[in-house]
Write a protein that binds this DNA or RNA. Structure first.
Length: 122
DNA sequence: CATCTGACGACCG
DNA sequence: GCGGTCGCCAGAT
């Protein structure tokens, strides 16, 4: 997958820890920044080996909407992450990713994950 | 080809 | 602390 670097990083997130989209984007040097990270996660194969629920918005906010929002909270809680309403306590759950440096410039790919279609699908 | 819309983030009031 | 704006990029309409 084109988002390999992102997934690889996310997979490394320890249980009970979380990363922000911005952190991911920065660590992988995704062109487009945080949003690119967001798209990457949206395109990620959920329910797989990718702990997407460990990726949250700036400040630990849970940006995902239903029905995943509740699922994410549940999963995080199960892992022992400190949850405060709709956000994670970055103070204790933030994870410092290893500096992934390698020139990975990829054209943000074409993933037919149409949020619209998805919405429809849902 | 023109617009809109996102699993975003930094800023400002 | 919350909500609105703008910048960003790609894909869908």
């Amino acid at each position: 997958m084109l988002w390999d670097p992102v997934y690889a990083l996310v997979k490394k997130i320890p249980r009970g820890k979380v990363l922000t989209y911005g952190a991911v984007a920065k660590a992988t040097r995704l062109p487009g920044g945080a949003r690119a990270a967001g798209r990457a996660m949206a395109a990620a194969p959920r329910g797989r080996a990718i702990p997407w629920h460990r990726v949250v918005g700036a400040g630990g906010k849970l940006l995902i909407r239903e029905p995943y929002a509740s699922l994410q909270k549940k999963l995080l809680a199960t892992e022992g992450a400190k949850l405060i309403e709709s956000r994670v306590d970055l103070k204790t759950c933030a994870w410092l990713p290893p500096a992934t440096r390698s020139t990975k410039q990829k054209s943000l790919a074409k993933r037919k994950t149409s949020s619209r279609a998805r919405k429809n699908f849902r």
